[in-house]
Amino acid sequence: MDNTDPRYVRSRLKLRAAFLELAHEDPDKLSVSAVCERTGIDRATFYRHFDTMDDLVADALGDLADQATAKWEATSTGSGIQYAESEAITVNYLDHIADNWRLYQWALGPGGSIKTVHALIARSARGVAFELHKLDPTLSDDELHFRATYVAGGIVGACIHWLSTETPAITSQELTHRILRISEQRLDHALY
C-alpha cells in the first residue's frame, strides 16, 4: 500500500476484509460485484485499488503472509535455531489456512491465480532472506534472494500439496514440523 491517504487506506482495508469474509463463506461466489456490494464501495473505487480480482486475492492473502513473516523476523536471532518461536508462528499461520481451507484451495489450486502464488513466495522469501542474511552477511544480494526464493518456493509448494485433499490430511503442527525440518536442511545447503 503505497498511498497513505487515510481514505485510500480505509477503502483498501475494507475491500480486503470484504474479500476475506466472502471467501470464507463461499469462494466460488467471489466477484468484484460481490466485494463492492459487501463494502458499499463502487466499482470505480475498486479499480483504483486493484486491476483485477486476482490482484485483490494476491494482496489480501499476501498481507496475511506478511504479518506471519513480520512475526518470524521479530524472533530471528541470526542463530538459525529459534525453532520454538518459528514453530509457533508457522502453526498459527497454517491454522489460519486450515480455517480457510476452501479459500486457499481455490486461490492456490489449479483454477487459482499465479499472482497469488507469486505473492506468497515473494513474501515468504523476504523472511527467509532476512534469516539468511543474519546467518551469512557476506552473501551477495543476488545470491541471497536466489537462495531465499528457493526455500520459500518449497514452503509454498508444501502448502499447495497440503491443500490437495478435501480436508487437511495432517495437522498444522505436523506440517509445520515437516516444513521446518526440510527448511533447516535447505538453509544449511543454501549457505554452503
Score class of each variant (00 low, 15 high):
N100T: 13
N92V: 00
I121V: 15
L144G: 13
V57I: 15
L144V: 14
F19V: 02
P27L: 00
A88K: 13
D63V: 12
T149E: 11
A119W: 11
H96G: 02
R48Q: 10
A60S: 13
L163A: 10
W106Q: 05
V32F: 07
G111Q: 14
R43Y: 07
M1T: 12
V57Y: 02
T171E: 03
S33N: 11
A58L: 06
Q185N: 03
Q185V: 08
L15S: 11
N92Q: 10
H145R: 14
P168Q: 08
A74S: 15
R126A: 08
H145L: 05
G154Q: 09
T39Q: 06
A74I: 03
L94M: 00
T165G: 02
K14T: 10
P110W: 04
T45R: 14
T138K: 13
R126N: 08
T116W: 00
S79E: 09
D59N: 04
R126M: 04
A65L: 10
H96Y: 09
H133T: 12
S113I: 04
R178Q: 07
R181K: 11
E87Y: 15
R123A: 04
A17W: 03
S140Q: 04
Y93E: 01
T77K: 15
I160Q: 15
V35W: 09
L144Y: 13
P110R: 12
A44P: 03
L163G: 11
T167Q: 15
V117E: 11
L120W: 07
G112I: 08
E184M: 07
V151C: 02
S33M: 05
L139F: 06
D5M: 02
L22P: 08
Y8Q: 01
D51G: 14
G109T: 11
S11F: 08
Q67C: 08
R16Q: 05
A190I: 03
